[in-house]
Design a protein around this nucleic acid. Structure first.
Lengths: 217, 217
DNA sequence: CGTAAATACGAGTGATCGCTCGCATCATTG
DNA sequence: CAATGATGCGAGCGATCACTCGTATTTACG
């Protein structure tokens, strides 16, 4: 025995949780730490985010923090994951809600509802979302957008077929790409950075109009 | 005399150049330092950007660097300014070029040319532009976008008047906002983050189509 | 050429901060 | 009620890095 009793011989490429919190108190601890991370991030920005500050704001010891997060980036990544999951859940709840109700909506209707749901989801924690989008963009990208793109593509394909297609775009792959980027940018613009004094409803209406105009031009 | 001979009693809010480079060699030095900043930024990212590294890559002393830049942020800000000015100059050269030639182009034509010029400008130093957009977004915003917005608004206004307006959008203020964000996002998507295997020309065409579809829907 | 100003230098300093480690406390299990 | 593992603690280490300051070199200019 060479005395090497490390439980993790090879650190995982994706820095996530170092140790699984088993008991209830430790699970609560992880949540409290992520809450504190969000507060520091929103209040002081990424540059001022130190592990010591997070621990202090969370009211836990720096040692406890490192029981569950291998490094500083893991903290932000975990927070972003939690935030993404919450937004995604919100959107999917909306979508599920329609499907129980009437079917066969027009593309304009579906797109309007989808964008509206996405916009509402962005209003969950807009300040946090803005900081994450602005200052955590250099961290490894996650798959939120991939999922969104899949959803979008399916929606477009469904309405580009049949005898009277509503979607008149030449290339569905490119169209998905363009619409994805457009929608993302417009949602952020409308929710996180609206021009001063503008009406939120009008902005949303125009964002939907922009997407639909492209698809059905 | 209390011996306080500091030339800058109050540090400027905007950290720019600490001292004006007067001689040719010092002007060259500033340029070399900004070049080095760009290289380090592109190669290693913002997190790894240290003033010592920049000085080393530039082949100058750390002391010389601080003769002209009051702090690290000033370095990045100055680089971004230089980069913006170069891009802006490229675009304006294009615009001036049309105006000497024929007039009275259609909106679709003008918008296509404008977006094309912007896209070409983004191809100047795409890697640098990407890093700046992604990792220097938290620094104070500059006025590049304000200028672009002014240009855009003038363009729209010119084509929203008269008996047969090409622009059919309800509110010009909102339209400028929407088009500005759309164009910005699509240009970045097309130049800095195109989907693998996609044709650059097709992407550009669709970007223009998207903008025009919104304006003339 | 002489002198003063401008420029260039780089070792070193002070402060910050990510992270460890040895120990205390709490929960679980038999 | 042990005994064992899980959890929690926080002083402090080690490394990094922005930035200073005293000095050396170069240029401008009469």
């Amino acid at each position: 025995m060479l005395g090497n009793s490390r439980p993790e011989p090879i650190p995982p490429a994706r820095p996530s949780l170092r140790k699984q919190p088993r008991q209830a108190r430790s699970r609560a601890l992880v949540d409290v730490i992520l809450d504190a991370t969000a507060r520091v991030l929103v209040r002081d920005g990424y540059a001022a985010l130190t592990t010591n500050a997070v621990a202090a704001v969370a009211g836990v010891s720096i040692g406890s923090l490192y029981q569950y997060f291998p490094n500083k980036d893991a903290l932000v990544l975990a927070l972003r994951d939690r935030h993404s999951r919450r937004m995604h859940a919100l959107i999917m709840a909306e979508v599920a809600h329609w499907e129980t109700a009437g079917h066969d909506a027009t593309l304009a209707d579906l797109m309007g509802r989808t964008l509206h749901a996405a916009i509402e989801a962005h209003r969950l924690e807009p300040a946090l979302h803005k900081v994450l989008a602005l200052e955590a963009a250099h961290l490894e990208t996650h798959h939120e957008e991939d999922e969104t793109d899949g959803f979008l593509r399916a929606l477009l394909e469904r309405h580009a077929q049949g005898p009277n297609p509503e979607v008149t775009v030449p290339d569905l792959g490119i169209a998905t790409f363009i619409v994805g980027r457009m929608a993302h940018a417009l949602i952020h613009a409308v929710v996180l950075d609206p021009p001063p004094g503008a009406d939120a409803h009008a902005l949303e209406r125009e964002a939907v109009r922009a997407v639909m105009a492209y698809l059905t031009a």
